[in-house]
Design a protein around this nucleic acid. Sequence first.
DNA 1: ATATCTGCAAATGGTTTGCGGAGGA
DNA 2: TCCTCCGCAAACCATTTGCAGATAT
Lengths: 138, 138
Amino acid sequence: MVTSRRGFIRHTKQREVILSVLRGTDTHPDADWVYQEVRKVLPNISLGTIYRNLRILVDSGEAMELAFGSSSSRFDGDAENHYHFICEQCDNVYDIPLPLDHGLENEAEEVSGHQVASHRLEFYGVCKTCSNASDSPR
Amino acid sequence: MVTSRRGFIRHTKQREVILSVLRGTDTHPDADWVYQEVRKVLPNISLGTIYRNLRILVDSGEAMELAFGSSSSRFDGDAENHYHFICEQCDNVYDIPLPLDHGLENEAEEVSGHQVASHRLEFYGVCKTCSNASDSPR
DNA sequence: ATATCTGCAAATGGTTTGCGGAGGA
DNA sequence: TCCTCCGCAAACCATTTGCAGATAT
């Protein structure tokens, strides 16, 4: 894993819009959703540019990539580590506003002997919206 | 997400060997590693069969699929939920023998209002082997 | 007997990349 | 000017799938 050698990062309209789209949603979208949104502002942007910039944003710590079991990566404009909940029914991703539990890292370090630098915690289940929708009204 | 409709599951040599390879390692291999191992026993097996059976094993709860940021999925012959440590240097995956912390699920449920059914916890850092290797001997 | 499974090879689909031109600094 | 970025399209690559023959029950 070579250090991403990237000289100067130039400011472009495209990257600006991509980042603002990402910051402007809490839906944890995939690249294609970002593409569709950005196209409303920049109709000629290409999907390749979306991917290139999402990668730059992730590498530079301005965004976070979420790779679940699903086929495509999802992106989060909030680069601070935080927990997520994935609804197994509608596939939506929600933020879980719990404080980071660094004690877990200490426990893992003690029990394994490895140097733990970070952790990732995800919850799975059925979200509020889906469980309400399945309450059959009489 | 339709319920996996799969009538009867026939016993085949291929699936038997695939499962025993998976059970016989703690390296959390990807499909291609499994393929190479199984070929030592069944030289004519195809990669498609590996993928097909890994999916069947995962769907039937006999194995676990681990999708990290990396390009390909990794598989674990231990289907019981447990925690993992991923070395950011060598990319190896290790089991973390901590008891499942179901309290986390309760906390998440309270703070979010979603029905939490399970959780997944992963630790990242540098493993024992890699940190020893980088201790420059004088 | 027959429905499932296999090997093969082609198809899929998300993501990356090479290229020539455009545009920030 | 110079070097990075863009749009485009082709390439990549892990995974899936259609097909025709093989095989478990």
